[in-house]
C-alpha cells in the first residue's frame, strides 16, 4: 500500500460519506443521478465477487463491504425512501442503462486478461466504472443548478480516480512486472471524463462563484 493508493481510497470513502450525508441527513438526492448510483452498485457487485472466498487483508474486506453496502443503500434511499425519492429529478435523469452496460459486457467478453468467470466479471466492472459517471455528468449539465454537496461529491470521485493513476505509476516503478493495461486504460479514460468538470470546478473555486456547467 502506497500513499497514493491510500489517499485515493480515502477520497473515494469521503465521496461516499458526502453523498450519504446529503441523502441521510438532508433527506435530499437533488442533482444526484440514480442511474449512476445503480451502475456503481453493479460495478461493486461484479468486482467484489471474491469478498468472502479470498481474504487479502482486514482493510480490503472492510473497504469492500463499505463500498458495496453504501452503493446499495444509496440506491435504496433514492428508490424507496419516501422523503428522499421526492427530491429525485427523474425527468432529467434519462440516460439508458443498457447503452452503457451492454457495450461494457461485450467488451469484457472480447478483451480480458484471462477467460474465467471472475476475471471477465472483474474486467466488466472496470469498463463499467470508467463510464458510470456519465449519467451523473449529463444530469449536472442539464439541471445547471449544482449544490455544494453534489459538486463536492463529483469532485471527490474524480480526485479518487486521479490518485489511483498516481498509484499505478508508483507501483509500476517500484514493483517488478506490474503491468495492467486494461486497468490503466480504463482508469485513464475514467479520469479524463472528469476533465471538463474539474475545469469548471476550479474556475468556480478560484472566482468564488457558484459552480455551473455550460449547456
Amino acid at each position: 500500500m502506497n500513499i497514493f493508493r491510500l489517499a485515493g481510497d480515502m477520497t473515494h470513502l469521503a465521496s461516499v460519506l458526502v453523498l450519504l450525508l446529503k441523502i441521510h441527513t438532508i433527506k435530499s438526492c437533488a442533482g444526484i443521478s440514480l442511474k449512476t448510483q445503480e451502475l456503481y452498485a453493479l460495478v461493486f457487485a461484479s468486482r467484489y465477487l471474491d469478498i468472502f472466498t479470498h481474504y487479502v487483508s482486514f482493510y480490503n474486506t472492510v473497504m469492500k463491504l463499505i463500498f458495496l453496502g453504501s452503493a446499495f443503500s444509496i440506491v435504496w434511499y433514492i428508490r424507496r425512501h419516501k422523503l428522499v425519492r421526492r427530491s429525485y429529478d427523474k425527468d432529467h435523469d434519462t440516460f439508458r442503462h443498457y447503452f452503457i452496460v451492454l457495450p461494457c459486457l461485450i467488451l469484457a467478453l472480447l478483451i480480458h486478461e484471462k477467460f474465467t468467470f471472475r476475471v471477465v466479471m472483474w474486467t466488466f466492472s472496470l469498463y463499467l466504472e470508467a463510464v458510470a459517471i456519465l449519467p451523473q455528468l449529463v444530469l449536472l449539465q442539464r439541471t445547471r443548478n449544482i449544490d455544494n454537496l453534489t459538486g463536492q461529491y463529483v469532485f471527490l470521485l474524480g480526485a479518487y480516480r486521479a490518485l489511483y493513476i498516481l498509484n499505478w505509476v508508483y507501483r509500476y516503478f517500484t514493483e517488478p512486472h506490474y503491468v495492467h493495461w486494461i486497468t490503466w486504460i480504463s482508469g485513464l479514460i475514467q479520469t479524463l471524463l472528469y476533465a471538463d468538470f474539474f475545469y469548471y470546478y476550479f474556475q468556480s473555486w478560484k472566482n468564488n462563484v457558484k459552480l455551473e456547467l455550460p449547456a
Binding site: 481510497d9 473515494h12 480490503n60 471472475r118 476475471v119 472483474w122 489511483y164 495492467h180 486497468t183
Partner: peptide, 10 residues
C-alpha cells in the same frame, strides 16, 4: 498476476 490485481486493489 491478474488474480493478484483482482485481490489487492479496490
Amino acid at each position: 498476476p491478474v488474480e493478484q490485481a483482482i485481490h489487492d486493489e479496490l
